[in-house]
């Protein structure tokens, strides 16, 4: 089997970043007693770390073995569910209407599951992975709404671009179109532009945490919502791509992890300070 050096480098970088995240979380857990948000985040990151280690080990120990459903898929499902559970705890105090978000995420998830099943012909993995991804997407979209992370126009643009990319990915993946150039011209640049925009929003949200001292809890929640939205978008882009674009999005997936880590740790610090002052704790 040929070694894909870009893929290997990307996975090793992700291992380093996630291991750093795990090392940062453990002392915070000791400091803040037993915070369920940190426990969930720790579990999510350990799942991601073990999934990467498993993937590299499998490539070395059993290079020709590719299974329809493997342990690294279980790890991915676990990571997404734990991240979604952490978001559920962070935002559970805020109520809002969620009918439209539920419909949009269900439609997007079904669209993705159908695409993956037809593309790879692997049913169990894609259905289970799609359900967990859809649940994480729902929690992220809900957290965006609860924190007003994006204004109405931004949200409409993001949803429209997402569905356009999803629709364009069908002819590209199934090679249904006679001229594949048209979807290819729009497909990757659109996804890349939105990825860069999500990174910009995440940087701005995290900068607010370091610059402003008022409304710290709200700002932390908004930073969490924005960075997890970026994660969801990057993963969606990676899952509908292959080759070099996949490696680029996989690399971006690693780069967004420190943003999530920083904003969650900041949120926990503020929560701890508020609890010590006698404020409400999550």
């Amino acid at each position: 089997m040929e070694i894909d050096w870009f893929d290997l480098f990307s996975t090793l970088l992700q291992i380093a970043v996630v291991a750093f995240a795990v090392i940062k979380i453990v002392p915070q857990m000791r400091r803040s007693g037993k915070s369920v948000i940190l426990v969930f985040l720790l579990y999510a990151f350990i799942c991601l770390l073990l999934s990467d280690i498993y993937w590299i080990s499998l490539s070395v120990v059993h290079p020709d073995e590719r299974l329809p459903f493997s342990i690294s898929d279980v790890a991915d499902i676990g990571e997404q569910l734990m991240l979604a559970s952490a978001l559920g705890v962070i935002f559970r105090g805020i109520k809002c209407r969620k009918r439209l978000e539920l419909i949009l995420t269900i439609v997007a998830s079904i669209g993705l599951i159908v695409l993956w099943v037809v593309w790879t012909d692997e049913w169990i993995k894609n259905i289970l992975g799609g359900i967990s991804y859809g649940y994480l997407m729902f929690m992220v979209v809900l957290s965006d709404k609860k924190t007003n992370a994006f204004n109405r126009i931004e949200a409409i643009i993001v949803w429209c671009v997402s569905f356009v990319c999803l629709v364009l990915s069908y002819p590209l993946r199934w090679e249904l179109a006679d001229d594949l150039l048209i979807p290819a011209i729009f497909f990757y640049p659109l996804m890349l532009i939105l990825t860069v925009w999500f990174f910009y929003k995440s940087i701005v949200a995290v900068r607010v945490l370091t610059k402003h001292r008022e409304n710290r809890m709200e700002n932390a929640r908004r930073a969490i919502a924005v960075s997890t939205s970026a994660l969801i978008w990057i993963r969606c882009s990676a899952y509908v791509s292959d080759g070099i674009p996949f490696t680029v999005f996989d690399f971006a997936n690693t780069l967004i992890i420190p943003f999530i880590l920083f904003s969650v740790l900041y949120h926990e610090r503020v929560r701890r300070e508020e609890a010590s002052k006698g404020g409400a704790a999550v």
Binding site: F40, V61, V74, G78, E79, L81, A84, S85, Y135
Partner: peptide, 20 residues
């Protein structure tokens, strides 16, 4: 989701050991 997430971690650890 929390139960499945918890069991995923032990499955992955166990799977990594068995594979190695």
């Amino acid at each position: 989701p929390a139960v499945i997430g918890s069991i995923s971690l032990s499955m992955v650890f166990h799977g990594l050991y068995n594979m190695l």
